[in-house]
Design a protein around this nucleic acid. Structure first.
Lengths: 340, 340
DNA sequence: TTGTAAGCGTTATCAG
DNA sequence: CTGATAACGCTTACAA
């Protein structure tokens, strides 16, 4: 269906004006028929729709956006789309928006602030009606551009005192400490951390380590590896912990359920027991967490609610009736299952 | 940053005309400076960029798209974004496009043709320069709209004799048969299938079952469940197979690695052996497939290549230099590991 | 209920 | 190298 290879004659597209000509009305009436049918007489409406069906007319939303100054586009930036944490967030987020007639312009930013800034500016050129970002840490240039854009901006999956506009998430430090409290209450006197290349994951593990040591005096082994949030990486980290860090028992706090699953796999592959020898705690409470053997003890964050709430608040702000909240802490929940 | 709640005075945006006024040139020259700098004198260029920096000007891509009739937007439709199969496809796909300056308009269509048709029409109203669809089965209305749009359309993850425009993928039937051949060669005389609510998965299992029976005369147990492609669903299906279908040994072909992982988990949780009692074959060769115990035997499809090739061919066609291919079969590969 | 006129902020075309 | 001027296809007043 590619356009004729470089031909000059463009394939005369169907416009509202054309529909109007066929239906015997002006272009404006066609526009009205589509956006405000109640203001057009039934007979006219019928003729217009007949013309639309006949021609297969699809309105040009670009022109509409330019004229109305509303793009009905929401841009969303996440570090990675293949990471279930973020993809499920987007899923919930876009559902609410789709229902309200918005579409999603999506980009991956990796974990680099520079890439994010570039992506933000590119997105802003599309004049989205609002924007969703992951996390609260952005480059100065990004913040400036965002503020200049003068649209609602929600930062998800973290909280901050000074968001660009507003944020919905939870405290990663508090989550790390909660796991440390859990570990201590459970009687662990040695601990280790497994984490991926993700600033937020590192903040959780740092808070965990500090609290765990303060509480128990025990050490916290760290493989010091730069990893993806994958099962394999979890296995590797667990292996490194045992082979190189001399970690021979205790509780392991992993930055994602996937890595936790990998850690368990490695422990069991070596004939050791979970949770007896090594207790494992994940993060995220992914769907599969109840399906592992033993079922995974983890930290649940209600991503569904996070996404939905972000969507509805964004819509509210677009319509000028936002709550005015600057930071919404949705919290998290320790889910104790069998692995710790 | 929401606009003043319903105020009348719009916040006077910065336009190319404004930049021109500051730099002492006309609006057109600003446009040129941005899209074709070589045609503007160095001094002028400098003044223009100074004005841009000073104001934080971000060009309006909507207006640009309307005037140039090129949106630099590619729309992509996938059944689900939380399914790693599709999200990794999009990831590879969008990478190539981003490099060429395109942005991605993404929607999830679920597994319903009606939803897909609706989404396609909505996307088409944005005048994307090209479109990516998952699979080759679309409603008549969708095909009509697509053809009328007169843009390159690639259908991914399947092949067909008569795509809307062109397709890149592999034969799901051939994949199912290949697994059956593998099973027979391996000496399996009983088999079972575990599959998700996905038309393509069902085609693979049907082809598998037919070939397996033809080859070995053995039966193929089917739990007949309507499931998600999740680990838990895999466990449930495996349990149903053993408890309700009397399946007590043989090879299980699963429609995804995740389900296969679940099936293995269930087998092992019951104290039975993989692959001795139950051989398990997955589909997709996800990253974690090498990390399971035993490592998962599966069917690999090169999603990376699929996505990249789709992107580059789409760009080529947009520029009027497409290959003209109608259907590209990238094939698949049986990866024998420990689970079967 | 319908129509006219004036943008929306760019790019394309043609002159100079 | 630079600038008028005319689209691009729609929405938003304002009139009739």
């Amino acid at each position: 269906m590619a356009e004729g290879q470089g031909r000059k004659d463009r394939p005369q597209r169907v416009t509202m004006a054309a529909i109007g000509r066929i239906a015997g009305v002006s272009q404006v009436t066609v526009s009205r028929a589509l956006s405000n049918p109640s203001k057009v007489s039934p007979e006219t409406l019928q003729r217009i729709h007949a013309a639309i069906d006949q021609t297969g007319f699809v309105p040009n939303a670009i022109a509409g956006a330019l004229a109305s100054r509303r793009s009905m586009l929401i841009s969303a930036l996440v570090p990675s789309i293949t990471n279930l944490t973020y993809s499920s967030m987007i899923h919930a987020f876009s559902e609410g928006l789709r229902e309200a007639g918005y579409q999603i312009l999506l980009s991956e930013t990796g974990f680099s602030p520079e890439d994010e800034e570039r992506a933000i500016k590119l997105h802003l050129s599309r004049r989205p009606d609002a924007m969703m970002l992951t996390g609260v840490s952005h480059s100065a240039g990004a913040r400036r551009a965002l503020i200049g854009a003068d649209i609602p901006v929600v930062e998800l999956w973290d909280i901050s005192e000074s968001p660009v506009d507003f944020c919905i998430g939870f405290s990663h430090e508090a989550a790390g400490r909660a796991v440390a409290d859990f570990a201590a209450a459970r009687g662990a006197d040695e601990a280790a951390v497994i984490y991926a290349r993700d600033a937020r994951a590192k903040r959780r593990k740092a808070a965990f380590a500090e609290r765990f040591t303060a509480l128990t005096g025990g050490g916290v082994a760290d493989p010091g590896l730069d990893l993806e949030a994958s099962l394999l990486a979890g296995r590797q980290a667990m292996a490194a912990l045992m082979d190189e860090q001399g970690f021979d028992g205790g509780l392991v706090f992993c930055s994602s359920d996937m890595m936790a699953h990998g850690a368990m796999t490695e422990v069991q592959a070596r004939g050791r027991q979970v949770p007896e020898d090594f207790a494992v705690v994940g993060f995220g409470d992914q769907e599969f967490a109840t399906g592992t053997v033993p079922p995974l003890t983890t930290v649940r964050v209600d991503r569904e609610r996070l996404g939905r709430q972000a969507a509805s608040e964004l819509i509210a702000r677009i319509e000028g009736r936002g709550s005015g909240d600057v930071s919404v802490d949705l919290g998290f929940e320790m889910i104790r299952r069998g692995s710790a």
